[in-house]
């Protein structure tokens, strides 16, 4: 039997039908066409599927789509503002904090959740927070630098 789920994704209301066994990641990608969230390990290790669910960073591969009912989800597609790229996205580009790119949406969503919680993190805090995201290309340094720089630039915007 299919379940009828109503939820809010990136500020927009969505309705879908899904089987109980479908993960939120599967529904985002295969039913709703939001393919920015990636499937890496599909078991909670890699963070490529990260989304923000009611303000909390989660692995969407470990959440059933049925559990999205009545909740608010932010995916990588919702990070960009009306005025263009989010500072995190700009800094990732500036610092070349990606190579193959498959981990990037997960990193940016995770970093967004960090800055929402802690706008001025130390390098150690960034590294600890990103422990649940795997990148096999960059060696992480450029990613950490991009997040720290984005934190500085959002702080400047807020001061203005």
């Amino acid at each position: 039997m299919k379940l009828h789920v109503k939820t809010t994704i990136n500020g927009e209301e969505f309705e879908f039908l899904c089987e109980p066994r479908e993960s939120l990641l599967e529904v985002l990608r295969d039913r709703l066409g939001l393919t920015g969230s990636k499937e890496g390990c599909n078991n909670g290790n890699c963070g490529a599927c990260n989304v923000i669910l009611d303000g909390r960073l989660v692995n969407s591969c470990l959440v059933f789509a049925a559990e999205a009912a009545g909740r608010a989800i932010t995916t990588i597609e919702g990070i960009q503002g009306p005025e263009g790229l989010h500072p995190l996205q700009e800094k990732f580009l500036e610092h070349a904090a990606l190579q193959c790119g498959i981990c990037t949406p997960g990193f940016i969503v995770a970093a967004k959740a960090l800055l929402d919680r802690n706008p001025d993190p130390s390098e150690a805090e960034v590294r600890l927070w990103l422990a649940g995201n795997l990148c096999r290309c960059t060696g992480y340094d450029k990613i950490v630098r991009a997040v720290l720089e984005a934190a500085k630039s959002t702080a400047v915007v807020m001061e203005k």
Binding site: G44, G47, L57, V58, N59, A110, A113, L128, A131, G132
Partner: peptide, 9 residues
């Protein structure tokens, strides 16, 4: 335990 994501869930 785990990662921030895991601890959130």
């Amino acid at each position: 335990i785990g990662t921030p994501q895991i601890r959130n869930m």
